[in-house]
Structure formats: structure tokens, C-alpha cells
């Protein structure tokens, strides 16, 4: 990416005189585009401001990693690292279970890979496990990063994450809410967590993927 088309913006900064270029994290006033957030303004066809901080707000279709915080008579209440709790209804569990058996499948503290099925205007968040890729997490580790860094961890068209999976020989699931599940052998998981934390710290810099490849090469060669 060219350096010239990115810059730091603060709320209220004038970004463009052309209201048609208003993208995410911006607003239009008097036919001009202003920034809503403190973050990096990306100038493409549209101008988007990517925040440097902030809480995760669930959106329909997001994959998230949640931790069960309560069990009610037909729902699991799931913490999804957000101001809003997720509701996982018993009917969204991949197999049919009775209400009195709920505790046997997911109890307080259990982790799940789930998808946001629906979010209504009052921010009632419905989750589902009905997909082959989703389900409960029994092995591996979970790490939490800021959700604003998730796009960088995935990379353009998934370039970063597929590189990590290949180089680290680990299974990695990235939740849009900033929780990441890593599964592999102990040594590789250690390296994976270390790498993810570096990506979080340096998410706003250029040429990160190349540097991470380099980092992994030196780490793995040092070990063998």
C-alpha cells in the first residue's frame, strides 16, 4: 500500500470535500466528509477510518469465540468480549438436547466457536452453532487481542492467516471479537501466541506480513 494514502485522523478532521467518498468511520456534514474516530484514514474510492481502539459490536454473520457465563432454562448466555452478551438457544446446538441436559454439553466457563445469527436494534445478539466449522472448544488455547487488529491478523484476502497456519502447523480460528483459538502441539502454540501478539502490537505498520515470515523463519531455524 502506498504511504501517501494513509494518515492519522482524529474525530472531526476534514477528510474530503466530496460527500460521495464517505466510508466507514466517517460522517457527512454540509456535503463534506469528516472523521468520526481516532484512527487511520485510508484513502481509496471511499475514505474509511480504521479505529485504533474500541469495543467489539456484534454484527450478523460474524464468527466469534464466546465463553458461557450463565445457563438459563433454554439459553446459554455467552460472553463475547463486547458490551452485549450473546444468547445461544438450545435449538441452535448442533444436536437435539433436552433442557435438563444443557449442563452436560456447555456449562459456565465453556468456550464455543459460534456465529452471530441475528442482532436486533436493541442489541439482542443471537448465536448459533449450526455449522460444521463451529462448535465447542475442548483443546487448544484462546488468546485475546483488540478486535480492531483482527483484519490485520487475517490479512488481505486471508494472506496473513493462511501463512501462519502453514508455517506454524497449527489450527487457528479467528473470532471477529478479538478472541483467537489456537490448537497444535505445545511448542508451536507458544510460537503462535507470540507471533499473534507481535501482529497486534505492530498492526498499523507497513510490510508486516514479510516481517512476520522473516520472524518465523529465524524462530524455527533457531530451534532446529
Amino acid at each position: 500500500m502506498d504511504r501517501m494514502d494513509r494518515k492519522v485522523a482524529i474525530p472531526g478532521d476534514l477528510l474530503s470535500e466530496d460527500k460521495g467518498r464517505s466510508g466507514e468511520g466517517t460522517y457527512v456534514k454540509d456535503d463534506k466528509v469528516y472523521s468520526l474516530l481516532y484512527g487511520i484514514a485510508n484513502y481509496r474510492d471511499k475514505i474509511n477510518v480504521i479505529p485504533l481502539a474500541g469495543k467489539y459490536v456484534p454484527a450478523t454473520g460474524d464468527n466469534v469465540i464466546g465463553i458461557v457465563k450463565d445457563v438459563t432454562f433454554s439459553n446459554w448466555i455467552v460472553d463475547i468480549n463486547s458490551p452485549y452478551d450473546g444468547l445461544l438457544h438450545i435449538s441452535e446446538f448442533p444436536k437435539r438436547i433436552e433442557m435438563d441436559e444443557m449442563q452436560n454439553y456447555l456449562r459456565i466457563g465453556s468456550s464455543v466457536m459460534a456465529r452471530v445469527k441475528d442482532v436486533d436494534s436493541t442489541m439482542k445478539v443471537e448465536l448459533t452453532l449450526n455449522d460444521r466449522r463451529l462448535g465447542t472448544l475442548k483443546t487448544g488455547r484462546i488468546i485475546e487481542i483488540s478486535h480492531t487488529r483482527v483484519p490485520r491478523l487475517i490479512g488481505k484476502g486471508g494472506s496473513m492467516i493462511s501463512m501462519l497456519k502453514k508455517e506454524l502447523n497449527c489450527n487457528i480460528f479467528v473470532g471477529q471479537n478479538g478472541r483467537i483459538w489456537v490448537n497444535g502441539n505445545e511448542k508451536e502454540m507458544d510460537l503462535a501466541l507470540k507471533t499473534i501478539l507481535i501482529i497486534e502490537k505492530e498492526a498499523h505498520t507497513n510490510g508486516l506480513t514479510d516481517r512476520i515470515v522473516e520472524f518465523l523463519r529465524t524462530e524455527t531455524s533457531a530451534r532446529s
Binding site: 474525530p11 472531526g12 460522517y27 485504533l52 481502539a53
Partner: peptide, 11 residues
């Protein structure tokens, strides 16, 4: 507030 990533019209 800006540091917390809260959307604002301006400072």
C-alpha cells in the same frame, strides 16, 4: 474519549 475509540463528531 478519542483514545477509547468512541465515535465523536469532534473533540
Amino acid at each position: 474519549l478519542a483514545d477509547a475509540g468512541i465515535p465523536m463528531k469532534s473533540l
